[in-house]
């Protein structure tokens, strides 16, 4: 076995063994190591404590630490599995794993459901859906009349809420996504397919087992 994680690499407070993370996610060990380099950058961009705070997440996404965005907030909260206000390394890798092109479709569908279940009731409710549409309109130049918004939300609910109980449950969501696969296109990040090749500057600073290097060759 090679020393595939160098002792010269700093360990953050929430550091986890890349081999364990690779075994639980679609990533290889070398890709987890590349993600660690990325994680170190992100987690020390404002507060140098090796943990990703919401401001650092927003800075990375928008180049602005103060930009408010409903969906970025929800994604941060879902990544922050321990709910301690920061994204630790293991949380970062496991959560990004869901966005990997090879991640199970079920995981992507479930993650998207939790994203849209703003109040975490186990259902996507009509008011939540309207709130999300309004949030999108607020950040974009798209202008829709209130009548149009109501009509779109009504139509979507009519199609998705097949039990007609005024809320979308997980089974209804799965069925709706199977009819409209584009709904989870945001759940796949092509970048992750081979992050160590897409971001060679990250992998260049890590040590990888020779066998893995030969696989990449």
């Amino acid at each position: 076995m090679g020393c595939y994680f160098s002792k010269k690499v700093r360990k953050t407070p929430g550091y986890e063994d890349p081999t364990v993370l690779a075994s639980e996610t679609p990533f290889t060990v070398s890709e987890v190591e590349a993600l660690y380099e990325l994680y170190l950058k992100l987690s020390n961009s404002i507060i140098e404590d090796g943990l990703i705070h919401k401001e650092e997440f927003q800075l990375a996404l928008f180049r602005n630490e103060n930009k408010k965005n409903l969906f970025a907030d929800r994604i941060f909260d879902l990544f922050d599995v321990k709910r301690n206000g920061v994204i630790e390394f293991g949380e970062f890798v496991r959560s990004l794993g869901v966005f990997h092109p090879n991640a199970p479709l079920e995981d992507k569908i479930a993650f998207a459901f939790r994203l849209y279940d703003l109040r975490q009731t186990g259902y996507i409710e009509r008011e939540e859906l309207k709130e999300m549409v309004l949030a999108l309109l607020h950040e974009s130049d798209l202008v829709l009349s209130d009548d149009m918004i109501e009509s779109i939300v009504d139509k979507t609910f009519k199609d998705a809420d097949t039990k007609d109980d005024g809320r979308i449950d997980q089974d209804e969501w799965k069925a709706f996504v199977s009819q409209h696969p584009s709904l989870i296109k945001n759940m796949t990040l092509p970048y992750l397919k081979d992050i160590s090749l897409a971001f060679p500057s990250f992998i260049a600073r890590t040590e990888v087992e020779e066998s893995e290097l030969s696989e990449l060759a």
Binding site: L38, K41, L42, S45, A60, L61, F62, R63, N69, L70, F71, A72, D73, R74, I75, F99, Y116, L129, K130, M132, V133, A135, L136, E139, S140, L142, M148, S151, I152, V153, K155, T156, F157, D159, H180, S182, L183, K185, N186, L189, Y191, I195, A198, F199, S201
Partner: peptide, 24 residues
């Protein structure tokens, strides 16, 4: 209209995680 509310929502910049991977 055939607009789907979830498709509209997906246009949000908050969904675009590519910023995480850009060299700073």
């Amino acid at each position: 209209n055939n607009l789907n509310a979830f498709d509209i929502i997906s246009f949000s910049s908050g969904f675009d995680l590519s910023g995480l991977f850009e060299e700073k």
